[in-house]
Computed example of a mutant assay.
Amino acid sequence: MSTAPPATAPPRARSSFPLSALTVMACTGFLVITTETLPAGLLPQLAAGLNVSEGGAGQLVSAYALGTVLAAIPAISLTREVRRRPLLLAGLFGFLVANAVTALAPSLAVALSARFIAGAFSGLLWGMLAGYARRIAAPRHTGRALAVAMAGTPVALSVGTPLGTWLGSAVGWRWSFTAMSLLAAVIMAAARVLVPDVAGQRTMTRLPLTRVLRLPGVGTILTVVLVWMLAHNLLYTYIAPYLREARITLRPDLALIVFGLAALAGIWITGLFIDRALRTLTLASVTLFAVAGAVLMAIQGSLIAALVAIVVWGIAFGGAATHLQTAMSEATGENADVGNSMLTTSFNLAIFGGSALGALVIEDVGAAMLPAGVIALALLALVIVSCGRRAAFPRDR
């Protein structure tokens, strides 16, 4: 039997809301998401710099996602007993190295390898961050703590990726990845000072992976993740062709900035109510997805209607990760890191699926029909959430 101390945070860390530590975790999420999405805004520069086609350069996104899908569950399973702060620092160091190698890559093969490694460390960090954030906060604030820790995602989408794209366009794509490497170093230094350490999971509380998967509610939550995020990525990935074919005079980058800012509002709302109204928030968010899709489908050609729909979509998405990770953490208890590694894998499968399904829709019926897919998938997710009232999304407190 392991002699590791119980997996609890130091009393001082729980005496007040650990905003500084959670901000560092939010910055970690910002780093992870910006690193993931950065190539999408720099495809012409990457293609020219690596002497490949834009399609070849686009594989830098796929390599990252593949690394996350393949590494998330094994990485968390193998590190369940490791103390959390050293593991966080190791993950950040992985991003420092991977982004540095990408910045210096002499060929596409080297860049793809570095991106795959970055994706693997992404799987590690996403798998542990939710449980870590909840454990350093007082029990009554665990949901709020998770909302703050996840705030880096919408900030990355609304600010990080556009800023990285601007930097790469102004001074070269290699400097964008260099900046990501330097940011990783800064976050590492802050984490050493501001983030309290907690023990890893005790051996006596560890369940095998298959038993975690069979815990009540886990399968339902993973299905909701896949369906709901498939709805999101179906439209998010192909927002540019949708706006063009729907005759909406809005630049894609501006649309995504509006989306990201609205997502911050969604995070704020989630932080206020997540600790006592998980089920209501999740049902409301999924419903808003369907509403946004309906507006985009019904009133094409209207800039105002499109902006309203994008704001609604952003608010609904802003709290989604917190809703789902809270549900998974409560369903899996002390095995939350493993549960959230499964959730991370499901998220990235949805990214793959959204890209593939969206391509089929665009080719067969046109990008203007993408909101129809959003509506159908959101309604399916709504039914699944509604049916998960016992274990996955229990009644509010």
Rank of each mutant, 00 (worst) to 15 (best):
A7I: 00
R14N: 06
S15K: 10
S16W: 07
P18R: 01
L19Q: 06
L22Y: 01
C27L: 15
L31M: 06
L31D: 01
L38W: 06
P39F: 08
Q45K: 03
L50A: 04
N51Y: 01
G55S: 14
A63H: 04
G67W: 08
A75G: 00
L78M: 14
R80C: 00
E81G: 10
L88P: 01
G91N: 00
G94N: 03
L96V: 11
A100N: 03
T102A: 12
L108E: 11
R115H: 09
A118F: 06
A118V: 07
G127I: 01
R135V: 00
P139M: 02
G143V: 07
G143I: 05
R144P: 02
A149S: 15
W166F: 14
L167H: 02
G172C: 10
W175Q: 14
A179L: 15
M180V: 12
S181G: 15
A189Q: 04
R202V: 11
M204G: 12
P208L: 01
V212A: 05
V212H: 02
P216C: 03
G217C: 03
V218P: 05
G219Q: 06
L226E: 11
V227G: 08
L256A: 09
A263I: 05
A277Y: 14
L278P: 10
R279Y: 12
A284D: 08
V286C: 12
A290F: 08
A298H: 07
I304G: 11
I304R: 01
F317I: 06
G319A: 05
A321E: 13
L324Y: 11
M328H: 07
S329N: 06
M342E: 01
T345K: 02
S346T: 13
A350E: 07
S355Q: 13
A359L: 13
L360A: 13
V361R: 11
G366A: 04
G373R: 02
V383E: 02
V385N: 08
F393C: 09
P394L: 08
